[in-house]
Design a protein around this nucleic acid. Structure first.
Length: 762
DNA sequence: GTTCTAGAAC
DNA sequence: GTTCTAGAAC
């Protein structure tokens, strides 16, 4: 890297650092300064407003001039005052103008209770803030606090939210020698993962997995889940730092400051992560009882080794709890290393729900597997196998039978796996680490020489496996075992529609080619108005005849023909269809909008949509309904917590009458916009039972094809609460336990497992 | 149907 | 600056 060159050629320069402490009275600012100054080899000056007037309180101007003098003398400076709002900080930040001084913030964002109790207890405080009045002052100050952002002009911000964070920060600054400088960016905040620069995004677009990149949703946070009155400042801020000369970290980098208030919830995370990302649990430290300190050293070592090798990929260490020891250890150890905070960070959350619950997009996850590679045991292994469904088990078996400690195996996840559809995970990498637990096979009996070596090997294999995925996905993102349906469908339609290709898998590359060839003109409207007939034939050739009055409804684009082609020639795709009979074809929706989402496709020619359906088709509707029910019941046997709804879109986008059988969790990364949601959750969606009634009594269905329905506000399908955008809606529905509206509970509109309370569905 | 983009809206 | 939407492409 060019950094090495710089280090070799440019001698390190003595560079003062201006540290602006941010914290309420009692947060420990003065103690922090004193401790650092007591052990640092760097000359420090503490500028304290409480004592600057000859031991008595002074004013801001005095502080500013005192700090200026010290910085001129080449000394590093602590600004020891509360600095809780932006305005207070701004003038001090200006002292760092120019490249010669690094301006840092150290935020002592400790619980208010703690600050208050310290303030109340202390005597002889320099600022005379002690005893009873302290509580009121601290409370008032904290109500108005504004956490610092990089955009204010800081080159580094360290957030401390508990004593251990403070210790780490103390250590960082105490050991900062006169010639050292610290890495730029935000550290220690609860949600370090997050957005990446748009420019980088564009650059990455070509190298990504289509499904993982399918959505650009972000902003996942649910105001309804916040305690009212609590600080809900999930403010995001991006800042690009251009090169700063004479600094160890003089590369251009963009970092994000995500100041998080007192709400301690990973659900607050905001992410736009289309970059290849490996999420991995700590290997061997759980059930295999590997020493945490040693494991943390190895993680840091291996991350340092690999993270810089990845140009456009990220590694994320995941654990379930904020209290995770291994996360704290790694965070502490990584602080001193020169590792880009965007290429590696830690994340608190469930590795099987990183996207749906944490907003963190990871296309690859690592599994702390057992040597048999079976779903047994507990912890991460059981959770991942469970979440990925039987698909992972079979895909794993196909690939490898067993794995010895220190090794990893990459398994592409079939597209039918819930982890694929819901979370965008395309690969699972099984890793087996060393075992120190005598209750488990292959115990190393505390031999850490061997153990460390094996753990190092395990991480090497894991990261190399990830690297191979990243490399291979560059231009052929859909792997062999992934989404056969899509591929076949593409072939099918290509062969059948001689003029208009419907290529899905190939879309990206095709688009790129198109740029060179120029775009075809749009051809909606007149030219396309030839076309469709409605005889009862299955011969697609009838399409080129004339239209009858009943079907003046719609003009179908080339892309909308896929289902029609399947209905006409299901045998060509038989391996990818769930069921074929004389009347219907059943298939998985290519872009499922829920955990289970299948289509029951009518095979009758000329039946493009509900508008075309008449009394004569009643028997067919009944049949479609029965087949749909049968599949719903099959899925309910596998997972009794699901709830299904069967129905039609008033105005479908795809030609050929099809019944949606869709589970009501709507957990899918393919559900991306208002139209998607509203097409299943407004009157636009017509329940199959109602349609059959209407056809039976009136000979036609009451269509609700008003476009307004599709652009209606987003409301939860259970509790009817409104949500401002899709990410927030999804977050809400992932936990909403309200019963379904009464209307849906009637007339068999919802299908659930016998005995399963429909009000308590996941 | 999905994807991408630009520009509006926040 | 980020997020959302609409329009156009296929």
């Amino acid at each position: 890297m060019d950094m090495d060159v710089e280090e070799a050629s440019a001698p390190k320069e003595r560079k003062p650092v201006l540290v602006i402490l941010v914290g309420a009275p009692g947060s420990g600012k003065s103690t922090f300064c004193e401790e650092v100054m007591g052990s640092s080899t760097r000359p420090w000056v503490r500028v304290c407003q409480d004592t600057i007037g000859n031991g008595k309180a002074g004013n801001k101007a005095q502080c500013l001039s005192s700090a200026t003098r010290a910085l001129k003398d080449g000394k590093s400076v602590f600004i020891d005052r509360c600095n809780l709002d932006r305005e207070q900080r701004s003038e001090f930040i200006k002292l760092g103008d120019g490249p010669q001084i690094d301006v840092h913030a150290v935020v002592l964002d400790l619980p208010a209770k703690l600050c208050i109790s310290r303030s109340v207890k202390r005597t002889g405080h320099e600022g005379n803030l002690q005893g009873g009045k302290a509580a009121a002052v601290v409370n008032r100050m904290l109500q108005h606090k504004e956490l610092p952002k990089l955009s204010e002009g800081f080159s580094r911000i360290t957030f401390c939210q508990n004593e251990s964070d403070v210790k780490n920060a103390l250590n960082t600054y105490s050991t900062l020698g006169p010639l050292d400088s610290l890495q730029y960016g935000c550290f220690g905040q609860k949600n370090p993962d997050s957005k990446i620069q748009v420019g980088i995004m564009k650059f990455l677009k070509r190298a990504e997995v289509p499904v993982a990149a399918a959505s650009r949703e972000s902003g996942i946070e649910d105001p309804t889940s916040q305690t009212p009155g609590k600080n809900n400042s999930c403010c995001k801020d991006k800042q690009t730092f251009s090169s700063i000369p004479d600094n160890d970290n003089s590369e251009t980098k963009e970092v994000e400051n995500q100041a998080v208030g007192s709400v301690d919830s990973h659900a607050n995370q905001v992410s736009l992560d289309d970059i290849p990302t490996l999420a991995f649990p700590s290997i061997s430290t759980s059930d295999f009882q590997f020493n945490h300190e040693k494991a943390a050293d190895i993680i840091v070592e291996k991350v340092a080794e690999f993270s810089n090798k990845f140009r456009n990929a990220r590694l994320v260490l995941v654990d379930l709890s904020h209290k995770s020891k291994i996360l704290s250890l790694v965070k502490a150890k990584i602080a001193g290393k020169n590792i880009d905070a965007q290429k590696f960070f830690t994340h608190v959350g469930d590795i099987t729900h990183l996207y749906s619950r944490g907003g963190l997009r990871c296309n690859v996850i690592a599994n702390a597997a057992n040597w048999r590679l079976n779903p047994g045991g507990g912890g991460v292994n059981a959770a991942i196998f469970n979440a990925a469904g039987p698909e992972l088990e079979s895909a794993t078996k196909e690939k490898v039978q067993s794995l010895s400690p220190g090794n990893a195996a990459v398994v592409p996840l079939p597209s039918s796996s819930p982890l694929f559809t819901r979370e965008g995970v395309t690969h699972v990498i099984h890793v087996v680490g060393p075992n120190m637990n005598p209750q488990r096979p292959n115990c190393l009996n505390n031999d850490y020489n061997k153990g460390c070596k094996i753990l190092q090997d395990a991480y090497t294999s894991l990261f190399e496996g990830f690297a191979s995925i990243v490399r291979n996905q560059t231009w052929h993102p859909v792997g062999k075992s992934e989404n056969l349906e899509r591929k076949s469908l593409e072939l099918q339609v290509q062969s059948d529609c001689s003029r208009n290709y419907f290529t899905k898998t190939d879309q990206k590359s095709k688009r790129d080619v198109d740029h060179g060839l120029g775009k075809s003109k749009k051809y909606k409207g007149t030219r396309d108005d030839s076309g469709l007939t409605f005889t009862d034939s299955r011969n697609e050739n009838v399409d080129s005849e004339h239209r009858t009055e009943r079907s003046m409804t719609k003009t179908w684009g080339s892309w909308a023909q896929a289902l029609h082609q399947i209905a006409m020639h299901p045998e060509k795709l038989k391996d990818d269809l769930l069921e074929i009979s004389d009347d219907v074809v059943v298939l998985n929706d290519m872009y499922p909008k829920a955990r289970k989402h299948v289509l029951v496709l009518a095979r009758t020619g000329g039946l493009d949509c509900l508008a075309d359906v008449q009394k004569e088709h009643l028997q067919l509707l009944n049949k479609m309904h029965d087949v749909g029910l049968k599949w719903a019941e099959k899925f309910l046997n596998e997972n009794a917590s699901l709830v299904f709804r069967l129905g039609y879109h008033s105005a479908p986008s795809m030609r050929q009458l099809h019944l949606h059988v869709i589970s009501q969790d709507f957990e899918s990364i393919h559900l991306k916009n208002k139209k998607h949601w509203n097409s299943f959750n407004t009157a636009f969606f017509l329940d199959s039972v109602d349609v059959m009634d209407e056809i039976s009594s009136d000979g036609k269905a009451k269509l609700k094809d008003d476009d307004k329905l599709l652009s209606m506000e987003l409301r939860c399908h259970r509790c009817r609460s409104a949500h401002p955008n899709i990410p927030r809606l999804k977050l809400h529905i992932s936990s909403c336990q309200s019963p379904f509206p009464a209307h849906l509970l009637q007339h068999g509109r919802l299908v659930h497992a016998p005995g399963e309370p429909h009000s308590n569905v996941q």
